[in-house]
Amino acid sequence: MKLLRSFLTGTALLVSFSLTSLPAHASSTDEPIVPIQKSPPPAEPLPPMRPEERGLMIFQQVCSSCHSMERAHYGDMIGLQPSVTALQHWAQQRHAGLESPIASPYPSVAVGKANNGGDYPPDLSHIARTIRGGPDYIRQMLAGYRPVPPGVTLAPNTYYNPIALTHHHKFKMRPPLHEGMITFPDGTKATIPQMASDVTAFLQWADDSHRSTRHFIGTAVLLYFALLGGVLLALWRLLKRTA
């Protein structure tokens, strides 16, 4: 299915991708935007989710309450959340539409700084690419919060994270992830390392959403050139002897 989807988006047949995949996923679509306390019945097994799909849920429920993702629109998440209505619902909750950028919840930089101990929550559009340390850093840092060791004093609104690169481990982002804070429809347990890994996968997807399609097309293109090159090589060798 994934391969088929890559093919559809990648070679971009004129069939709309959203239309073809819409009916298949309609059953699982409305889950991410329901309140956290309403857990789905665990009895019915749902199709497994990709890590970045779980990551989108975490982004919607956790990250986006402080961070923006301004280069992406709400509608761009159609690749991870095939239900247009669910995306529309999410956008409307944030007073936006499908074509609006995922803006910061703060009205101004000053308000954002004031709410986060003086550091403005950075935009997440390309964070997986631009942050020092890349996705590995994000994954470890999100799961890297520790109790304050003796001898270290923290200012108010500051949190101890030995992985974090800024402010000598005295990090301004409050620990975003807590055990079991999200119920994933596919039954994955929401442990902190699991969620850190999922949200990192999502941030990588947000930075470079065509990665898997690109690799698929690239392989096909290389196979094509191997075939064409083989035929041309045979022809060239033939001509070398004859013409």
């Binding site: 094509y224 075939l227 064409l228 035929v231 041309l232 045979a234 022809l235 033939l238 001509l239 004859t242």
Partner: peptide, 11 residues
Amino acid sequence: RTVLTAGSVAL
């Protein structure tokens, strides 16, 4: 030769 030419043109 014809087969190879036709093949590469088609490809």
